[in-house]
Design a binder for these strands. Structure first.
Lengths: 109, 109
DNA sequence: TTCGGCTACTTAGCGCTACTATGTACTAGT
DNA sequence: ACTAGTACATAGTAGCGCTAAGTAGCCGAA
């Protein structure tokens, strides 16, 4: 979509990925294709992997290495309790922002 | 709200300010207080002024200097046609992101 | 058997945006 | 004179997504 989307994704992409991980673990390449399937067609692979490194270092996910039939071993990420807490915070922050913007759009000065 | 909000504001704050300018022009200090009144209590003054410089340089607003009774002269910003176009784009980008996230929140993998 | 194409992960460097901190300058009230 | 409120400006910092390039394993077609 362009530069606007790039800037807007800052801060939200992490939440999106955490949300994707709720319920079912996933590995990097898989997450990238999931994002693309959901319409985020322009998200760079490198972005996803860098993000995964970050959330791992923050302790929001547990990581497990599993062999793949089709290539190098996969790093499977699972949301842990701290990650769920962070996701919770994310939704709160998002809701706040979302409500303000909805108000602005419908002319509520 | 904290670091999460700071990151999330990237890209959206510009749209918020443009939206605030639709209908009625405003000057920097006024915009800052408007934002605070709407719940964005932690937005730094310097952030707003820097943003205003940016959107002026991008040609999204027209600027007029007006004397103030209470201090230094005000710089009054008015949304111009190009700014309206940019705001339109912003709302499109926002809608896209907003819809994806709503889908994610309600369990739509 | 070699080559392209898919899978899968990594990393250095860049650009953009919001924040911190500080400074300037004008007015009014005490 | 001093403080508080109004009003704007800016240098430096941190964080995040993107670009670009690389490594590595597997497979099927030429």
């Amino acid at each position: 979509m362009g530069k606007q989307m790039t800037e807007m994704l800052k801060g939200t992409l992490e939440g999106i990925v955490l949300a994707l991980l709720t319920g079912s673990p996933a590995y990097g390449y898989e997450i990238t294709t999931l994002l693309r399937a959901q319409g985020f067609t322009e998200i760079a692979e490198g972005t996803v992997y860098a993000l995964l490194v970050r959330i791992e270092q923050k302790g929001l996910v547990d990581v497990e290495k599993r062999p793949s039939e089709k290539g190098p071993p996969r790093k499977v990420y699972t949301l842990n309790p701290q990650g769920e807490k962070e996701l919770d915070e994310f939704w709160k922050t998002w809701s706040f922002l979302s409500e303000r913007l909805e108000q602005l759009r419908t002319g509520g000065k």
